[in-house]
């Protein structure tokens, strides 16, 4: 028996919004420690990793490990039927071929349940090596979204360059060149408005705008986003899911042949 109840059901709605453009189907791996998902996009350029810890749920029961293969477009359609303040429960029997989503209004006066067929998906989890990143940048998630959106008008790629002075985002194309520089914030009223940079060595990498734009669908999840970069390795774009986990996107850089 698997059952996970989340009073803050809108977190799950937001997680699905942040995945559905990048992934069409994926497996949710459930264990007594929580729920995890790892999947690559169709063109194998990026990888998404989601973690939802058991202790972040209001009720969590997972008698035996199970992997629930789901069509994320369908899951997203179902979750859109839940109101933002609904309590969401996910339920499945052991070795079941379907999953049930239950949405309860806060006053318990409306209860809806939706059943969805599970899929058999080929599991292929990749090993992500432990990496000490050369630069770790934290910035407001909405600021990052704006920067990527603005620079996407100029070209297909964004160059992210991090030095002690700050971080620079650049794009070039037919209409011209755009550069956006962010300095580390000296002092801020709110922690979530801060730009912080932890840098071991300067690093410059080039990434496809298309993917960065899809990652920013997770902006609704968290006030801040963390970018971790090292020379010639994938960028990590991380959004926290409340205090129960994270969505991490890994994006392969564009590299000189």
């Amino acid at each position: 028996m698997f059952e996970a109840r989340l009073v803050q059901g809108n977190l799950l709605k937001k997680v699905l919004e942040s995945l559905k453009d990048l992934l069409t189907e994926a497996s949710w791996d459930c264990a007594d420690t929580g729920i995890q998902l790892q999947a690559m996009d169709n063109s194998h350029v990026s990888l998404v990793s989601v973690q939802l810890r058991a202790d972040g749920f209001d009720k969590f029961r997972c008698d035996r490990q199970l992997s629930m293969g789901m069509n994320l477009t369908s899951m997203s359609k179902i979750l859109r039927c839940a109101a933002n303040d609904d309590i969401i429960t996910i339920k499945a029997q052991d070795q079941a071929d379907n999953v049930t989503f239950v949405f309860e209004s806060p006053n318990q006066e409306k209860v809806a349940d939706y059943e969805m067929k599970l899929m058999n998906l080929d599991q292929e989890h990749l090993g992500i090596p432990e990496t000490d990143y050369a630069a770790v940048i934290k910035l407001p998630a909405a600021e990052f979204q704006r920067i990527i959106k603005d620079l996407s008008q100029f070209g297909e790629s964004v160059v992210i360059s991090c030095t002690k002075e700050g971080v620079k985002f650049s794009a070039a194309g037919d209409i011209g060149v755009g550069n956006i520089k962010l300095a580390q914030t000296a002092s801020v009223d709110k922690e979530e408005e801060a730009v912080t940079i932890e840098m071991q060595e300067p690093v410059t990498l080039t990434f496809a705008c298309r993917y960065l734009n899809m990652f920013t669908k997770a902006t609704c999840l968290a006030p801040q986003v963390t970018l971790s970069m090292s020379p010639e390795v994938p960028l990590v774009v991380e959004y926290k899911i409340g205090d129960m986990g994270h969505v991490r996107y890994y994006l392969a850089p564009k590299i000189e042949d």
Binding site: M40, H44, V45, S46, L47, E124, H125, L126, G127, I128, P129, S157, T206, A208, V233, P234, Y250, L251, A252, P253, K254, I255, E256, D257
Partner: peptide, 14 residues
């Protein structure tokens, strides 16, 4: 010109 790398060239299959 830079070429888009594949994520599989960085992360290992089990």
């Amino acid at each position: 010109t830079k070429r888009q790398k594949n994520i599989l060239s960085f992360f290992q299959k089990p």
